[in-house]
Design a protein around this nucleic acid. Sequence first.
DNA 1: CTGTTAGCGCTTTCAT
DNA 2: ATGAAAGCGCTAACAG
Lengths: 324, 324
Amino acid sequence: MHHVAKAAGVSVSTVSRVLSNGKYVREDTKLKVQKVISELGFQPNRLAQGLRPGQTTAAIALVIEDIANPFSSAIAHGVEEATRQHKHLLVVGATERSFELQSELMREMVRRRVDGMLVMPAAGDHSALHAELIQWAPMVFIDRPPRGIDADVVLLDNRGGARQAVRHLFDSGHHRIGYVGGATSVPTGSRRLSGYRQAFKDQGRTVDPTLITLDHHDAESARDAAVALLASASPPTAIFADNNRMSVGVLKAAHESEQAIDVAGFDDLELAELLSVPVALVTYDAVDLGRRAAELLFSRIGGDSAQPRRITLPTSLVVHPGMR
Amino acid sequence: MHHVAKAAGVSVSTVSRVLSNGKYVREDTKLKVQKVISELGFQPNRLAQGLRPGQTTAAIALVIEDIANPFSSAIAHGVEEATRQHKHLLVVGATERSFELQSELMREMVRRRVDGMLVMPAAGDHSALHAELIQWAPMVFIDRPPRGIDADVVLLDNRGGARQAVRHLFDSGHHRIGYVGGATSVPTGSRRLSGYRQAFKDQGRTVDPTLITLDHHDAESARDAAVALLASASPPTAIFADNNRMSVGVLKAAHESEQAIDVAGFDDLELAELLSVPVALVTYDAVDLGRRAAELLFSRIGGDSAQPRRITLPTSLVVHPGMR
DNA sequence: CTGTTAGCGCTTTCAT
DNA sequence: ATGAAAGCGCTAACAG
């Protein structure tokens, strides 16, 4: 800016006034300064601007497990939209399910003075981390409540969605229903498992624990687990998969299997309607999830200090008959 | 920091030395200061640090069309990984195909003094924008060369991939092959169309322009176009779809159609192997694309000022027989 | 209307 | 080993 001022033969304050559309500047000096600015391609340093007291960075952080997962990227999309509407910028970091990585990322975000953070929490006790960072920036959690604290969180009706899906399988005449699940260290999984159990209770049936297999992190492992289930002495006639990667694995297993099994799964799958295997999917609006979380965060940034809020988004079951 | 210094009874410079692991500080003062820092939960302001001469923000920008698209999110994943390895932070913005939005986003990134930018360029002449911003930060373009300038770009073998896919359809006995395409304003599309034409030339066949439909932006519109093609007087027996959204639309149309048509498409689709319609897909490693682009950018940030480089990543055709 | 000055949070000489 | 002071790029009084 110094440079611009010199080139235009004015003081830095005049340049600053021009930049901020300040009124107290003569029309011709303004023009002259603007000319120099565009000739030089000068862009003011927002970091320096933000250093002034009372200023914010106009940036929020999104700390998420893995951007490539369709669930995450839909959330990111909703967040990005809301962020743009609020004229903020979005800083993104991925945790790869590591609490340590997540903590370091969040600290780094704070060092950069983001106005707030949206976090898909890793497994682990958040009480110390939250206490350390909450003085710096409000946080809203996504998809699951962080363990150890009471904080804003926007999530899905995991239990209800799973329950409805499993009930659908019962309604289709199944009663030996397998369960292929992801990480159990995270609330999402346990809520979905709880929905599965509830559906059994609703039917007055008892759960056969040998039909439940957990802690799979990718489609490959889910598929192996499903194959094993189907090869057992008394195999399930239907399987519930606890998230999209599990569904992919289970569907592959079902597709390769001689047995005609039905599948239900949490999370939507593109092209589900064109699959050869019948599948019922628990769907929801993930973009909206991101948007809602961002809106809540912005309201916190704006000063809303009401009690921590928990927003649960509804799910709905979509049944695809399959080509069989 | 002032606050910490006062609480510890030392000067700000001492605190600064402790923070930067400075050598010239007595062990017990260091301990005392560290204690105060952790009690107060103090986090140094990186923006202020970055203000010092010669400092960088250790952040790069990713300006992309739409984060939710699986192609984009795979790229973002690769970029994020590389960024993390280089101990930088990633700022993300979406352009929604608007050149104006892209320009404003890039300017904002520069105002925040990112060290470099990764850009999936919107349609439009980039010469002025590039000239304006290149003095501030190196840029590497992703997926398509920006119009009007010679710049670093990492992209796919669009022409070769499309050509191979269409040849596959010829090899399967088709010769009336439709084309359902996305935006023509962007090089990607025209390269793919050129590959399609080339495949016809390879066969000594001429292209029937009535089988080509372009400028669809979502699956819905692609599907309508495919339905129309199939309903025409002399319909195609196979269709090539020029990106993942087009493929989804075309596959839906194919699935609903009485006719048994084959489909080929650019971009991978999850679960393609389980579809009821036979489909051949042009696949590639999108995560690697992101990673390679980020690595190139970091090398530019590191001072590499060689000629603009164009990196073309190979594609490969995966044939899914379908359940028909 | 415009220039001078102080100060945002930090690092880095330069003294002590 | 520590503190005082200058300066990074900018804005906001405060003068003129």
